[in-house]
Amino acid sequence: MSSLQDIAVPGITVPPSDGLSGNVLALLHEIASLLTALAEEGAPGSIDLRGLPLLPGEREVLKTVLGDGEVVAVIDALGETRVTETRLAGVWWVRHADPAGETIAEFIEVTPCPAILKSDPRDMREAGVALREQLAEWTGGATGGDDGR
C-alpha cells in the first residue's frame, strides 16, 4: 500500500502549444516567490489581477495552467464570490462578483485559507447570543449554558 509520501503533488497543467506569453510567465514566477515566502516565513501574499493589463486570453491561459484543485467554495454575499484552490496547494483564485455578475475584484491569494472564508469572531458571538435567546423563548427561559459573552 502506498504511503502519503508516495502520492504525487498535483502539478500545473502543460502550457498551450503556442507557449506562454511574457505576462503569464511573469505571474507564474511571482506566484513561485509568494509560495516560497508562505512556506518558509508563513507570510501570505496576493496578486491583484484586476489592475493588470493582460491581453485578451491571458487570464484564461493562466487559469488553465494553474488548474483546479480540491476545494471550491461559493459565497453568496451581495453577489457570488468563488474561491477556488488551484492545483498548487496554498494558491487560491478568488473572484468577487456583484449581483449582476460583474467582477469587482479578482485575486490570486497565496495563503493557507483566504480571509473571506473565515467567520468573523463578532458574528460568531452574536450568533451564539441569538441562538440562546431563541432557545430561551422555546424552552421558557432555561438555556443551559453561559450567556455567550
Binding site: 459565497i75 454575499a77 451581495l78 464570490t81 468577487h96 469587482i104 475584484a105 485575486f107 480571509a115 473571506i116 468573523d120 463578532r122 458574528d123
Partner: peptide, 10 residues
C-alpha cells in the same frame, strides 16, 4: 459583515 469585507477587498 462578510459582504462588507468583500466590498472592502474591491
Amino acid at each position: 459583515r462578510r459582504s462588507f469585507l468583500k466590498y472592502c477587498a474591491g
